[in-house]
């Protein structure tokens, strides 16, 4: 039985691959041309070709309300309808890779987190695009291979409950947290491996950073909570008076809604990059490139209005109050297991 199934799989796979081969060889010319052309009439050509394609499918890890705001603006401007598939950053990676390897080319454009985009690059799925907008983008948000471009930063900062922590008690430096008054009051997201890796780099040496967090866990204890948004909500409800890792925009939004929570600069603010890459196998490559350009220009204001931190610093400058350090996606892919061990040894 397993043998027959595998044979069947093998046969259908061969057929699918053959079909894919035929399709890509016909398409290769257009996507390479479209992605490398940089002449003065680039935008006009792109718009005309995109309108001829007339459709676009986007796989995205952006919250559905936010991504819909973006696609509606795009459709209003160019009259090209966008189909959205939404999942977690890992789901987006898994679905795109599985489908494309099986010869199903639904996805034109893939929008997800930095490490997952880097994984897509390694899976040989993305098409490098030379766009005149790239020089305006925040330095840490574009990889050297240019197969994807960061469109927004997800900034992670500390936050505290204003009912439970008075202004005078707000810590100013890491060492303040070792004071016994913080016993049992500090929370951290349970899988903040990339956060630890990035924050740790701001300590004089790697060892000093890890020693500090180990000491904090030993003296005052760190309560681990699964999920950044849960941790943010628990901080607002008073369950965790001081949370080290909350989404900056979420705290801001809840603060505006009247929740007793405020963000706090403690060490650097860690930024996760979210970006877009175009699939080599895209059926609508011009529309995909046009959407990427749109997100990096007009779309940046939409993102800013919705509380995100856009990467095109020429259009929306970074908040000056924050010392932003970007997570290195490629390094996180290679060293995830190592950082997980370090994290578990230090803070558990």
């Amino acid at each position: 039985m397993p043998d027959t199934l595998n044979l069947l799989k093998h046969l259908t796979r061969t057929a699918a691959l053959f079909g894919a081969f035929l399709a890509t060889s016909a398409m290769a010319q257009t996507i390479d041309e479209a992605s490398s052309y940089n002449g003065p009439d680039r935008l006009e050509k792109l718009v005309a070709a995109a309108k001829a394609e007339g459709a676009l499918t986007l796989y995205t890890a952006t919250p559905v309300e936010d991504v819909t705001a973006m696609t509606e603006a795009f459709t209003a401007k160019y009259d090209i309808p966008v189909t959205i598939w939404r999942g977690s950053s890992e789901d987006v990676l898994r679905r795109a890779v599985t489908e494309i390897k099986a010869g199903r080319h639904d996805a034109d454009l893939i929008e997800t987190n930095g490490p997952e985009l880097e994984a897509l690059h390694r899976e040989n799925i993305l098409q490098p695009v030379s766009s005149p907008i790239i020089p305006d983008i925040f330095e840490g948000a574009v990889p050297a291979h240019k197969e994807w471009v960061g469109s927004r930063l997800n900034i992670i900062t500390a936050a505290y409950n204003t009912d439970l922590v008075s202004e005078a008690d707000v810590p100013n430096a890491w060492s303040d947290l070792l004071d016994p008054k913080w016993k049992g009051k500090v929370g951290l997201e349970a899988e903040a491996y990339d956060w630890l890796a990035t924050v740790n780099a701001s300590f004089p040496s790697e060892k000093e950073g890890i020693d500090f967090f180990t000491r904090l866990a030993d003296t005052n204890g760190i309560s681990l909570r699964k999920g950044h948004t849960l941790l943010t909500n628990l901080a607002a409800s008073g369950e965790v008076p001081l949370a080290l890792t909350t989404y900056f925009y979420k705290v801001d939004q809840m603060n505006k809604d009247g929740a007793p929570i405020k963000s706090l600069q403690l060490g650097p603010s860690v930024a996760r990059v979210n970006g877009l890459g175009i699939a080599k196998t895209a059926k609508h490559p011009n529309a995909a490139i046009l959407f990427q350009d749109f997100t990096l220009t007009d779309g940046q204001k939409i993102l800013a209005e919705r509380g995100f931190t856009p990467t095109n610093i020429k259009i929306v400058p970074l908040p000056t109050s924050l010392d932003v350090k970007v997570v290195d996606g490629a390094a996180m892919l290679d060293k995830l297991a190592e950082w997980r061990d370090t994290f578990e040894k230090a803070v558990k």
Partner: peptide, 17 residues
């Protein structure tokens, strides 16, 4: 989920999607 997904991606009988 992954097994069902992969099965009907390769066994293309119009169920996927």
């Amino acid at each position: 989920g992954l097994s069902v997904m992969i099965c009907y991606l390769y066994l293309d009988i119009g169920i996927y999607g």
